[in-house]
Design a protein around this nucleic acid. Structure first.
Lengths: 257, 257
DNA sequence: CATCCTTTCCATACGCTGTATGGTTATGTA
DNA sequence: TACATAACCATACAGCGTATGGAAAGGATG
């Protein structure tokens, strides 16, 4: 179909290959960072590389592979701080969580894609979270509890990021929206919510993701410490002691499936 | 453009309107439940209703509105169990969490869409989680801590569901995959992970979402209880007491932003 | 009764998507 | 020199969301 006289087509001259998996993924990441995930189309991507859309398919099998490659890039950028045996295991765990959050936050337009692809990405996560395991191991938790605690913490971070990247501003302007919504509630519908909101007021409700994240980490470390009290106590690392009882004190009917 | 003789077109006879917002959303939910979110197209949706695709746009402005409507349906189906003052606030909180998880799990093909739409849905969540507030209020937490704890718990549930709906089976067959992946790790890359995995073995690694969820709830209630010990102690509800110190004992450098 | 407005539905078409197919050409290897 | 392979391009197709505008049935109004 193609006329013989055309210039286009054919393999490029030696040493000037325009495409490679890396080059494509780098360009894709740039598009996503600059213009959002919806701006990433195969035509657009090929365009910024000065290439025909179909050429991309010689380096990546399809668009899903491009997105998976981007997720891979982000996880590769994950760098945990040096453990530093000087700090407590709690602080070590928190640092790991902060690093994990920051890595995914670095490309907010990509975060949703990464989190959605969990089944593919969970494989990567599994071998990425050694620092979490190390911190909890130092904390003296038995293997089973380490796994449970890491899963819980990672799931939380994913959920937190879901909310964080969904809003544009760093400080979500939740307060006015929430106040008006609460004001519209049918009388007596959600009394506790109403009381809490009015007690805090607009200022108290101003939400800051950073402090929200830190509050959550505090709950986690306390909860994990409480659960492991017995194990830790037997090693002598922690002397004070009945937090697990506090948690379960009025809760005799816990029903793990 | 249309020939005069054609039968098609025109308003239907009285009393036999084929379309309505509810009818459309019901059909859409059925498609998503049966065939997945990708099967939901405006043409397909119109097809199952025996109607021209463009007719849908008289009842819903665009496809995004259809998806938002589905999210709305799911949240409307959220039913929390009767608080029941007999159980502890911890169990009350857990029950609320279980109900929330179950509501979103009921339509797994839709969960990702709902969770992705957080900015739109968070508004709904805010007024949906009264039971969470009530439980924590009964636990004696001050307003600020109630908000932080609820945010943390809801974020966790979202992240948990992200993982849960991403895999088909109820029991994720993580073990063999994880084992082979760990076996491929460079020597000494993730020693703690390797040790934990080998300690648990394939049987110990078999992951069950239900028990994973319960483990997480235990960590949460313990962590929240620890954080509120002082407040609760002043009311005399809880007598034993130094868990907050345990959590922070070797952690003097907590740095909330 | 006739007229007009509004609502509901339909037909067509546009620009966009991912990608299947198959052609063209420069290169490494025999 | 011959050939297989790899890298690139042109075309085309089916599908998407939806803009535009026409047709027909009521309800309201004279």
């Amino acid at each position: 179909m193609v006329k013989a006289g055309k210039r286009s087509g054919g393999r490029p001259r030696a040493g000037e290959e325009r495409l490679s998996r890396e080059a494509i993924l780098t360009a894709a990441l740039r598009i996503v960072d600059d213009e959002g995930i919806d701006a990433l189309t195969m035509r657009r991507l090929a365009g910024t590389l000065g290439v025909n859309p179909m050429s991309l398919y010689h380096h990546l099998p399809n668009k899903a592979a491009v997105l998976a490659g981007l997720a891979e890039l982000v996880f590769a950028s994950l760098e945990f701080p040096d453990p530093g045996d000087a700090v407590s295991w709690q602080e070590q765990l928190k640092d790991a969580a902060r690093a994990y959050r920051n890595a995914l936050r670095a490309h907010p337009n990509l975060a949703l894609q990464i989190l959605s692809d969990t089944s593919a990405v969970s494989a990567v996560v599994v071998v990425t979270v050694e620092p979490f395991y190390r911190a909890l191991d130092r904390g003296g938790l038995p293997a089973r509890q380490i796994v449970e605690a890491v899963n819980t913490l990672v799931d939380f971070i994913h959920g937190f990021l879901l909310g964080e990247v969904a809003v544009r501003a760093e400080t979500f302007d939740l307060a006015p929206d929430l106040l008006s919504r609460v004001a519209e509630l049918p009388e007596g519908k959600a009394p506790t919510l109403v009381r809490v909101v009015s007690e805090l007021g607009a200022d108290g409700l101003a939400y800051d993701f950073d402090s929200g994240f830190e509050s959550a980490l505090a709950i986690f470390t306390a909860g994990i410490a409480a659960g492991t009290t017995n194990a830790v106590r037997s090693t002598g690392t922690v002397s004070a002691a009945t937090s697990v009882d506090i948690a379960n004190q009025t809760d005799p009917s816990a029903n793990p499936a």
